[in-house]
């Protein structure tokens, strides 16, 4: 059953890494869907295969079993309609910030002309607060600024799907919150479907429309939380009773995933919703 409303869809995806000690299963029957233009955050205990998930969705790897669909097309190899950003901003130090941001357009065929691309790059730099930094080198920028530039690069070619693998993980708390707001600004400007891997529950609630909690390894979707905070969200919303209740639910689910709690310990809250069972 293919639903065109889903931009990203995983069906019963299982994957194991081959190690010296034998196969190490990381994903076991993971199913999830992300509707078009919605924002999905994936949280889970360390080593539960979250990064594996990004590599499968981006087509860098193929799963042992199951299928990954992007825009109703089966993913078999990397696709230029995907943008990626990592915890490490991986800016090329020998290029200026502008040249770094334009890098994907050297690979992907785009209808944009060179001049349009440069204009778009400057526009994105303005949006993320890096006005005037186009000609700087990455070494002249702070960690937060590099990550902003990395975000610009990941969307310069107008990807349908943006895959973020803990892009804010290495930043200090205030810079991180700044960048969360930047993410909202970017999405308001041009909608895209986003899959965010994170360890930060507040981040997931603030940014996402849907939070998927993965179980311990080998992982499957243990719990799905619909974040029904009204937009536009502000950082203050994170301290609203609704958000606090969601955070408590997620915290509990993580503990369940870590094997440190059972469902019986669940916080009393109306947001709990059983993991979607996909046929």
């Amino acid at each position: 059953m293919t639903s065109s409303a889903h931009m990203i869809e995983l069906r019963e995806v299982s994957h194991a890494y081959r190690t010296k000690a034998g196969p190490l299963p990381v994903l076991d029957g993971l199913s999830m869907q992300v509707p078009e233009n919605s924002f999905c955050a994936v949280v889970g205990p360390s080593g539960c295969g979250k990064s594996t998930l990004t590599r499968l969705v981006s087509g860098l790897m193929r799963p042992d079993h199951g299928q990954v669909w992007l825009h109703s097309k089966l993913v078999t190899s990397p696709r230029p309609t995907v943008g990626m950003a990592f915890q490490n901003p991986v800016l090329l130090e020998w290029r200026t910030i502008l040249q770094n941001i334009l890098l994907p357009l050297e690979i992907v065929k785009s209808p944009m002309s060179k001049a349009e691309a440069i204009e778009r790059a400057h526009h994105l730099l303005d949006l993320v607060g890096l006005t005037g930094f186009a000609e700087k080198r990455p070494s002249e920028l702070s960690g937060g600024m590099r990550q902003r530039a990395s975000l610009c690069r990941s969307i310069i070619h107008k990807p349908d799907v943006l895959i973020l693998d803990e892009p804010f993980g290495a930043l200090d708390a205030f810079t991180r919150e700044d960048l969360w707001c930047t993410m909202h600004d970017l999405r308001r400007e041009e909608p895209f479907t986003c899959l965010l891997i994170t360890h930060d529950l507040r981040e997931s609630v603030f940014l996402a429309d849907q939070v998927v909690v993965m179980s311990g390894r080998p992982a499957r979707a243990q719990y799905v939380l619909d974040v029904d905070l009204p937009g536009p969200r502000t950082l203050d919303d994170l301290y609203s009773p609704a958000a606090v209740a969601m955070l408590a639910t997620l915290r509990h689910q993580i503990q369940v995933a870590q094997g440190r709690a059972t469902d019986a310990d669940a916080p009393l809250d109306g947001h709990a919703k059983p993991a979607e069972v996909t046929a």
Binding site: R55, S58, G59, L60, S77, P78, R79, P80, V82, M84, F86, N88, V90, L92, L103, P104, E106, I107, V108, R153, H157, I163
Partner: peptide, 20 residues
């Protein structure tokens, strides 16, 4: 990751060698 930013866009190994 350096490889991945280009590979995820479908770049060939030769391109990755020259550009990165």
């Amino acid at each position: 990751e350096y490889r991945d930013i280009l590979r995820s866009l479908g770049a060939s190994n030769v391109t990755i060698f020259w550009k990165i």
